[in-house]
């Protein structure tokens, strides 16, 4: 039996449910990972203009995880269109652009500019960016249901590409934000981006990150991510893409059982660039072993 690993994320059809997460993968891995066999590649988040990112140190390892404060360093839209996109699309795996901005206008401008780009399969909106309109410097767009809805609907008007809203776990009630994204026209949601975190050096009495705080990822956040996916699954009808500490096929299947239609592998790429491809193989074996015809039959099938 050859199991059916294909999944549908809105109108986007993928040959398998395993993508690589934004900011954790690039064509630099071409000699180490078989990019061709990935379900999709989500590119590093871009903004309209280039950004230089945060001061170092930008990384620190924590128990079974890592903190990063990259600060959305990127070379801007033009570079992405001229260099990054052609470099990624030549592997024939679907490429999803990740966009972010300071305003609805910036999101919409990016969406319009990317609308007819050859080889681009979908847009992921990175909504874990400061909510400038609402003034508070700490708040994120993805922490505000109203702001999330506004941006998603603005982008929806600007593009026909499948639209994925990537949400933050740093909220009281994920379902409110997820429903807002759905109602505004998102085709899918990605859960989760990194959790806020800090690490302190007691000898120097300084934070270990130059930016003081950062985003936690890796195996340490998997239980949190699973709960968030499960909660959202019970409330939204659009597909969920699960992420957070997925190291291999077992983690991926946990997410699928909790309601994810597809998954993203992030930090694990740094540990082993073959993690995502390994997860695809593992999922296939699991389906065969358990005599399940198609991976979509597993989505949300947690026995409770």
């Amino acid at each position: 039996m050859k199991p059916d690993t294909s999944v549908k994320i809105g109108r986007l059809k993928l040959k398998n449910p395993v993508m690589v997460a934004s900011g954790t993968f690039g064509e630099e891995y071409r000699e180490l990972a078989d990019i061709r066999s990935l379900g999709a590649v989500v590119a590093k988040t871009i903004t309209l203009k280039a950004r230089s990112g945060n001061r170092p140190p930008r990384l620190v390892e924590t128990p079974s995880g890592m903190l990063n404060s990259i600060g959305l360093e990127n070379k801007g839209l033009d570079f992405f269109v001229k260099e990054t996109l052609p470099a990624l699309t030549r592997f024939k795996a679907p490429v999803i652009a990740s966009i972010s901005g300071d305003s609805e206008d910036e999101f919409a401008a990016l969406a319009r500019a990317l609308q007819k780009r050859k080889g681009l399969s979908a847009l992921e909106l990175n909504l874990s960016c400061p909510n400038v309109k609402h003034g508070s410097s700490e708040g994120l767009i993805a922490q505000d249901a109203e702001a999330t809805g506004k941006i998603v609907s603005e982008v929806r008007r600007a593009t026909q590409l499948p639209l994925i809203a990537k949400l933050s776990p740093n909220v009281t009630d994920i379902t409110r934000i997820a429903v807002a994204a759905q109602d505004a026209g998102a085709d899918a949601i990605t859960l989760i981006n990194t959790l806020f975190g800090m690490s302190v050096d007691i000898e120097t009495r300084r934070p270990r990150l130059g930016n003081v705080h950062g985003g936690l990822s890796g195996p340490a956040i998997k239980p949190v991510a699973l709960k968030i996916v499960w909660d959202a699954h019970k409330k939204v009808k659009i597909p969920i893409i699960g992420a957070g500490g997925i190291m291999g096929h077992k983690d991926a299947i946990e997410f699928i059982l909790c309601g994810a239609s597809a998954v993203q592998v992030g930090t694990a790429n740094f540990v082993d660039p073959r993690s995502a491809v390994g997860a695809i193989e593992g999922i296939k074996e699991y389906l065969v072993k358990n005599k399940i015809k198609s991976v979509s039959q597993l989505v949300g099938r947690l026995e409770t």
């Binding site: 900011g23 630099e28 891995y29 360093e73 790429n269 740094f270």
Partner: peptide, 8 residues
């Protein structure tokens, strides 16, 4: 390898 932008 230059993917994560973590070592500036």
């Amino acid at each position: 390898v230059g993917v994560c932008l973590g070592c500036p």
